[in-house]
Amino acid sequence: MAGLISTSAKTKAEGSIVEGRQAMLLFPAWAVIGVLLVVPVLIMLIYSFLTQDFRGGVIWEFTLEAYDQFFLDRGLFGDEAPSIEWTYILIFWRSFLQAFFAMIFCLLIGFPTAYFIATQSPRSRSMLLFLVTIPYWVNLLIRTVSMKFLIRDTGPINEWLIAFSVIDEPVRMINTAFAVQLGLFYSYLPFMVLPIYASIERYNFVLSEAAADLYTGRWTTMLKVVIPSVKPGIVAGCILVFIPSLGAFLAPDLLGGAKNFMIGSLVEEQFKGQAGDWPFGAAVSMVLLTIIMIILLIYARSQARDAEGAR
């Protein structure tokens, strides 16, 4: 008895079982993510400043060539005065627009859906949420392929429209900006619904009653009371749709074709086969990463500020 107690003095310490071992427990995560993500990104940063090796890969000579190429057109021999290279800026701009409108359409459909689900009975709610989430878990590639199958010139939609004599010729839907929009919207819609749902679930509907009590019609109540209260969820949903859409690859590649190049397609092209321009690809990736990190930073700051304000 006595012996048991005296030797156990250390094991009967206060505090949780991870006390003193946190570093050890976190080491694997730190190591894996550090070595396989942080380091690679840093190396990618370095690569963006290296020279393209036309035989594939890079030559370890530092240069600003990649970024230069991105913004400026120095012509074939570099003698002419540089003019702005619009091609890549255009691609970025197009990606922004696509991502932005995907966000808007997801908002227009996602918000009413989230609101409707949140105002159903608890059992219906779980079922509806489950239904909305399942498509997300289906492989994005398969979802995009399904969409491609659906809207092709020889796809079911066109077939049915022709069969029912609505149109005579197939409607060109594939390989258009519209197709890419549709693809992005389809890919990330659940990301808009879920955070908005979470916010509305916490909303106290007595506020809507108070507004009605104070001569406010239905839609004004939505605009002036519900939406301001639910703003965090809306912002989160918008970010969760905008960011992946910006760097998307599958939708523009499978649904957009050559004329609807986006950032993702541009990057992918640099690493295909031997003729790729790795530094350029790295540079474009860096630009994309920087933009997204800035957006996330602004978002995090505004969250922190809101949290402070509420105190």
């Binding site: 507004a211 009590d213 104070l214 001569y215 019609g217």
Partner: peptide
């Protein structure tokens, strides 16, 4: 409908609009 009635309510949970100031709340109706 409630918003058409010249009747106003003081709710048990107060139901003040959290995103508006005191004067904005009072001015709402």
């Amino acid at each position: 409908a409630p918003h058409q009635r010249p009747v106003n309510t003081v709710f048990q949970q107060y139901a003040l609009f959290p995103h508006l100031t005191v004067s904005e709340n009072v001015a709402f109706g």
